[in-house]
């Protein structure tokens, strides 16, 4: 039901973009904005991969690592959740070079956003693991599994289902925070919008199109995650006996 409404919204958004670009005043901006959109999507995808990777590592380290590793992971999580994404982005962009580390702006963008969302994701992963029923751990011990086997085969697959909705929200946050990379000179959707706005002063068409494009990207992510959620929960709830 929800998925249908979201799909209708996505279709409406795309239709609106198409209708608007039939108008010459809007069409003018389309090629440039689409170029920016491609960069936005690229940063989102790479950032998401890094975020999931960091979240898994940090959550497992915080739960099961030896004490120093646990501290390290807690420090990572607290620092990246406690300061804002823009501060992190600027720190990597402006401060690292002063320590002799020169990174490409694109790399900085993916690193900062991936690490930022990863820190929030770590708490999501940790929460999902902890919420798996105690009996599942006990049954795995009774079957003499090793800790790694329990996690991989029994706990994580069950935690996975619980993680999907919060990860959906985090990915939306990621899409939105990619707009920050425009402030470190990357020509993403927001950067293009700013640039076109300043050069043409056609503020309304530019920002309307940009808002619609972000909306389309976000809706696509949301729909994808909802589908994944449906799929994952099927095995657990299939034909439940009353």
């Amino acid at each position: 039901m929800w998925i249908r409404m979201l799909t209708a919204m996505l279709a409406g958004t795309l239709l609106l973009i198409a209708l608007l670009s039939a108008n010459a005043e809007y069409r003018l901006f389309m090629p440039g904005l689409l170029e920016g959109a491609v960069l936005t999507v690229e940063i989102t995808l790479l950032g998401a991969v890094l975020a999931v990777f960091m979240a898994l590592i940090a959550a497992l380290a915080k739960l099961y690592g030896p004490l120093p590793i646990r501290w390290l992971s807690t420090t990572y999580i607290e620092i990246f959740r406690g300061t804002s994404a823009l501060v992190q982005l600027f720190w990597l962009y402006f401060v690292l070079p002063q320590f002799g580390v020169f990174l490409d702006a694109f790399v900085v963008a993916v690193l900062a956003l991936g690490l930022n969302i990863g820190a929030y994701g770590a708490e999501v992963v940790r929460g999902a693991i902890v919420s798996v029923a105690r009996g599942q751990w006990e049954a795995s011990i009774a079957l003499n599994m090793s800790k790694a086997q329990m996690l991989r085969r029994i706990i994580l697959p069950q935690a996975f289902t619980a993680m999907i909705p919060p990860w959906g929200n985090l990915f939306i946050e990621l899409v939105k925070s990619t707009s920050l990379v425009s402030l470190i000179t990357l020509a993403d959707l927001t950067f293009k919008a700013q640039q076109m706005n300043q050069s043409t002063l056609k503020t309304v068409p530019v920002f309307t199109l940009v808002l619609l494009m972000y909306l389309a990207i976000s809706l696509t992510v949301t729909i994808g995650m909802r589908l994944l959620e449906q799929r994952a929960s099927r095995g657990l709830t299939r034909g439940r006996v009353a």
Binding site: T178, S179, V204, S218, T222
Partner: peptide, 21 residues
């Protein structure tokens, strides 16, 4: 849904640049 799905930065620009129009 619309507000939550689009970047705050764009919304800031929107209010700052579009409202004067």
């Amino acid at each position: 849904e619309l507000i939550r799905s689009t970047p705050l930065l764009i919304q800031i620009f929107f209010l700052y640049f579009v409202l004067p129009k």
